[in-house]
């Protein structure tokens, strides 16, 4: 049982690391601020979800897990609001989103 949990936790952490790094790459590769927000969303949603769930499995049922759940909840509630505020502010600041139909970006 211990070992199953350990392996499961490691797998979740690996998945989380995967999404976090991909999101980071995306933030570097994407051509404008709006498309970069999508990539940053990757790290904020599934990256944090898998990493924090992986840690929860290691912590077991305790106050630590409660705190991890709260961190996850805060991140998932605040990240879309922050992204929306950023998008709205960027539009307000006259940043036009690029709209390609056929050519590739960048």
């Amino acid at each position: 049982m211990e070992m199953v949990l350990d392996y499961l936790s490691a797998a979740l952490l690996l998945l989380g690391s995967f999404f976090v790094v991909i999101g980071g790459i995306g933030v570097l590769r994407m051509p404008d601020v709006f498309t970069r927000m999508h990539a940053a969303g990757l790290t904020d949603t599934m990256g944090s979800f898998f990493i924090l769930t992986g840690l929860m499995l290691q912590a077991g049922i305790s106050g630590v897990t409660l705190r991890l759940i709260m961190i996850l909840g805060f991140l998932w509630f605040t990240s879309p609001v922050a992204t929306h505020a950023l998008a709205k502010a960027a539009l307000h600041g006259k940043v036009e989103p690029i709209e390609h139909e056929d050519e590739e970006g960048h």
Binding site: S9, A10, L13, L14, G16, S17, F18, V20, V21, G23, G24, I25, V27, L28, T43, G47, I51, G54, L55, Q58
Partner: peptide
């Protein structure tokens, strides 16, 4: 794996 995840997060911090 905790160490690996830390490194991944640090790498992403560098990219950010």
């Amino acid at each position: 794996m905790v160490v690996g995840a830390s490194i991944a997060v640090l790498v992403t911090m560098a990219m950010a």
